[in-house]
Each structure stands twice: as structure tokens, then as C-alpha cells.
Design a binder for these strands. Sequence first.
DNA 1: ATAAAATGTTAGATGCCTCTAATATTTTAA
DNA 2: TTAAAATATTAGAGGCATCTAACATTTTAT
Lengths: 222, 222
Amino acid sequence: MGSLTEENYIKSIYALSEATGEVYVSELAKKLDVKLPSVNSMVKRLATKKLVAYAPYKGIKLTEKGKKEALAIIRKHRLAELFLVKVMGLGWEEVHDIAEQLEHVNSSRFYERIDELLNSPKFDPHGEPIPDSNGKIHTQKRTSLIDLAEGLTATITAVTEDEKSFLDHLNAKGLQIGDAVTIKKRELFDGSITLQHKSKKEILLTHQVAERIWVEMTVTRS
Amino acid sequence: MGSLTEENYIKSIYALSEATGEVYVSELAKKLDVKLPSVNSMVKRLATKKLVAYAPYKGIKLTEKGKKEALAIIRKHRLAELFLVKVMGLGWEEVHDIAEQLEHVNSSRFYERIDELLNSPKFDPHGEPIPDSNGKIHTQKRTSLIDLAEGLTATITAVTEDEKSFLDHLNAKGLQIGDAVTIKKRELFDGSITLQHKSKKEILLTHQVAERIWVEMTVTRS
DNA sequence: ATAAAATGTTAGATGCCTCTAATATTTTAA
DNA sequence: TTAAAATATTAGAGGCATCTAACATTTTAT
């Protein structure tokens, strides 16, 4: 087990490499809110521990060992988020910061039990996949709001994006996980979508927002 | 908020001072499993932060500020233990180490919610009182197994002692929080007690063990 | 009352993680 | 193609938390 700081570096390197492939010292410094030399010396330490492969002036890459550690932390983070929402009844927009701390708890028993209580979930409340205990991510086809034709009804299952501003936006519109919505109108012009919500209110979502909302089709009986 | 290490020092100083009044550098070193000079320099740091009062070669005392911080940590520890047992279904003997980590989580929301879910509990699963959010401990008369007369029936509500060996001992005897027991026989000779348990088994407890078990009298209707 | 034992402190070093200031390399643009 | 801009590294220092070795004080027991 590395230190808390080390875990945060590993996690950030993983996240950045998922997003952009290569990871640079400057990006990492920005993400972790530390200065360049701090990153430089930490990356060197991580390299001696064989957690990253690193050559000066070149990008940073996680080794297999590093990747495994990253996935273990991400698993804990996402399990924690789901647990905070489903078991503890916290709002999806307020769980991220708590999960940032819980992800560093070192107790297989604790996370085993969370996994059991949640019935080995595959996605966290923001729609991100939860790696299994071996670090394997089971990706699975998912349908976004923008994939639905007009008139269809579906249930919101998750959202991507951890950002509080996004989650607050959805809350302000009155949307929650589990809500049933019907596509009222799809604007060809700007890709925005008008929903019919259970509250009977009509809700207008921009394309940018709608594509981040995952749904499950409501089965229509014949 | 102090560092994790600082919190552990504060907590240990509080625990030792509860047990013995005065706290000495050597006791603290033993409890925290570090060498004397480490304690010495940390205590000096804590003194400059006004968390402890300290004069060389004299004992260590928490200031009001230090005491407040200690009680906040203890509150979090005990809430966490109860939560792990009651909400997550973990065994009382396995929650201590996890709570040692959760007690450092910095989120009033998290602990507010735990407190709510547990309905503002007054005692943790080991029978220790839980300070309220102002650091006040509501002590309250409690009845131990050794206070009961023969023939009386009561329900186990908690135990003192955090030690795994003690908790394992009780588990081995088949005793759990919530179990109803009847006092079958009290030995004058050695203070041991024979219980009638719901499982219909008779259980023999030494005085030393029985006095650490808290019970609530079962109300007898007329 | 003093020597031995127990306890506590100081000095100086190390690892982790961060910083600023100075320098080096790589990329980009004139 | 070379100067400017962007990016990365090194050097050196500081705070936190720990250690070992050497020294100081207090307690205890003869």
C-alpha cells in the first residue's frame, strides 16, 4: 500500500491517460494542484517503485502494477459513491468529496461488504463502470437520452460526469435517477430534447446535457 | 483540521488521561508504537498549536481546544463502529480497525447522516458513550450482568472493552447484542454467573467477563 | 545521600512531499 | 532557422514525522 499522496497521483495518471492517451507532467500538476517540480520528483519516485514508466521530457505511463493499483482505487471510489447514495441516502451531487476520502480506506472486509450490500453493481451513480475486484471493467452497451426516438419512454439509470455543477443542473430541472421520462420532441436544429416527466412538467435539455444521461428502455408489452 | 498523525496523538492523549489522569511521554510512545524522541517533538508541536499544555519532564495535558478535538474524533470513531455493525452488518469484533480509519474522514455531512440513520445513538457497540456534536458525553446509569439477581431476565445492550480477544470470547460463547438472558445462578465463591440463553444453552461467565456486559432489564408486567 | 534505574530531552539524520529560483529541452512561429 | 514560448528538470530549502546516539533529569532503592 502506497501513501495517500501516491494513491492520488496514480489515480490521476490513470484518469488523464484514459482521457488523452499520454500524460504530461504539466497536466498532472494542474489536476493535482501542485507545482511542476513536485510532480517531477514524485513521478521519479513512482518510477523507482515500478508504478510508472517514465523518461525525462517524455510522457508518463502506468505500468501494469500501477494500472492495477489505479483500478483498485477507482473501484473503491465508485463503490463508495454508490453506497453513499443507495444505502446512506445522500444526494448524488454531494458524494464525490466523501468518496475521495473513502477510496483510501484500507479494508477488504469493508469493501467486500459494500459490494454485497449493493449486489455487485456494475455502474456508479454517475454512470461510470465499477471495475471488479480483479480490476476488470465490464463495459456494456448503454443507451443515452439522445439515442431515443420521439414518443419512447425510458427510465434514467445513471449519468456521466462527476461535476457538481452538472448534477446541480439536473437537480434543478427536477431529474433524478429512477425517473421515467418520455421523449416529447427532438429538435433537429440544435439537438435539444423536450421530455415529458412523471411530474407532468415538460423539461427541455440541451444536446450537451442529454447525451450524458443514460437510460434503460421501458419494455413495451404488445 | 490537523494531520492524521496529529489526530492520533490527540486521541491517544485523551484516552490515556481518561484512564490514568496524567499522561507521560513514555506511555504515549508505547501506545502509538513510536520512539520517545518522536513523541517529544510532536508534543512540542502540539504545544505550539495550543492543543496540549506541556512542560519538559512533566506530564502532558490536553487544553480545552485539544479536548474538543479529541471528543470530535472519538465521536466519529464510535458512530462509525455502530454504523458498521448496525447498518452494514459487520461483526462487532471486526469493526474497530475500520473505524480507526473512518474516524479521520472529514465530512460533517457524512457523520450527520450516520447519526440520523442510527437515530442519535448514545453508546457504541462496545458500550462506550458517544459524545454529542458539541463534545458532551451523556453518561447514564447502566446495569451490568453482575448487578442482576438470580431469576431476572435482561437483554444485552452493549459491552465495554474494544479488545478483539474479549469480543471473540463472547462470540465463542454464543452471546450477541440483543440476546435475552436469564440469571440462573450467581456463585458467591468466585462471582461467576450461569446464564440461561435463548438458545436454551446454559452459559457460564466469569465475574471478570460478566461485569463488562451491559444489559437492559426486561420489563415484567404485573 | 548517592548510585543505579527509569524516564525524558537534544542533536543530527532520513524519507516524504512540497515549494521557489534557476536552468534546460522541446515546440512553435516569425 | 533561429528566437520566443511552452514545457520540463535540477538545485536547494522547508515542514512533518520519524529514527539512533548521546546526554540530562528524576525517581528508586540500597
